[in-house]
Simulated assay, not measured.
Amino acid sequence: MFAIIETNVASATTGVLENLKRHRDISIAFLQMLDRKSKLEANQISTFYKKLSANKAKVNQNRGVPGLESEVARLDAVIKVDSEEMLFQQRRRTYIHYCVATEVSYLHKQQAFVSLLYQNFVHEQLQYARRTVDNWKALEALLCEMPKPEDFA
């Protein structure tokens, strides 16, 4: 009887408890990833867009004006650098969104794992209950073979 109880406790401890701890750790890591996402995804694209628009307006205004060719060339170089940086930021934002989507997908799969974990736990508990009933039935059969109090009178 004690072996059955020890097996049940060991199974519950190593199986269910450890897997629930793992799921808790995954959930905490997901929340931390969302915090990092909000910090990493500072909206710099709008800043670059405003700066780019202002520089393009200056270039269009100064193009063809004598004596401002060097200023126009400098602004063209700045526009090129800002355009590349804005493109980099857009790709970075897309990559961050991809990573978040992947993590959400993984989290959903883990929630399905928890459901399966509970199903297995209930199944193990049913098996434990059946073994306990079988054990009591075996003890009952032995009890019937024992002498009755009237036999000693």
Rank of each mutant, 00 (worst) to 15 (best):
I4C: 09
I4D: 09
I5F: 12
T7G: 07
N8G: 06
V9Y: 10
A10E: 15
A10Y: 08
S11L: 05
A12E: 12
G15T: 08
V16C: 05
L17E: 13
N19F: 02
N19E: 10
L20K: 02
L20C: 04
R24T: 04
R24C: 04
D25A: 04
D25M: 03
I26E: 07
S27D: 04
I28S: 02
A29T: 01
F30G: 00
L31Q: 13
Q32K: 10
M33H: 04
D35R: 05
R36T: 04
K37I: 04
S38N: 15
K39P: 00
L40I: 06
E41P: 01
A42L: 10
A42W: 08
Q44I: 15
I45T: 05
T47C: 05
T47S: 14
F48I: 07
Y49F: 11
Y49A: 14
Y49Q: 13
K51N: 09
L52D: 00
L52F: 05
A54H: 05
N55E: 10
N55H: 04
K56S: 02
K56N: 07
A57H: 13
A57K: 11
K58W: 09
N60F: 06
R63N: 14
G64C: 07
G64V: 06
G64H: 02
G64E: 11
G64R: 11
P66M: 09
G67N: 06
L68W: 01
L68D: 00
E69N: 09
S70E: 15
E71D: 12
R74Y: 06
D76H: 03
D76N: 13
A77E: 14
I79N: 06
V81C: 06
S83H: 01
E84P: 01
M86D: 03
M86K: 07
F88E: 12
F88A: 10
Q90K: 15
R91K: 15
R91L: 13
R93S: 13
R93P: 01
T94Q: 13
Y95M: 07
H97Y: 06
H97K: 10
Y98I: 10
V100F: 05
A101E: 14
T102C: 15
E103T: 11
V104S: 07
V104Y: 11
S105I: 07
K109S: 12
K109L: 12
A112K: 08
A112L: 09
F113H: 03
L116Y: 04
L117G: 00
Q119E: 12
N120D: 12
N120L: 10
N120E: 15
F121P: 00
Q125H: 04
L126E: 15
L126R: 08
L126W: 03
A129C: 06
A129I: 14
R130E: 14
R131N: 14
R131C: 10
D134K: 14
D134V: 11
N135L: 15
W136C: 12
W136F: 06
A138I: 01
A141E: 08
L142F: 02
L143C: 08
L143N: 12
L143K: 08
L143E: 06
C144Y: 13
M146E: 13
P147S: 10
D151H: 10
F152I: 12
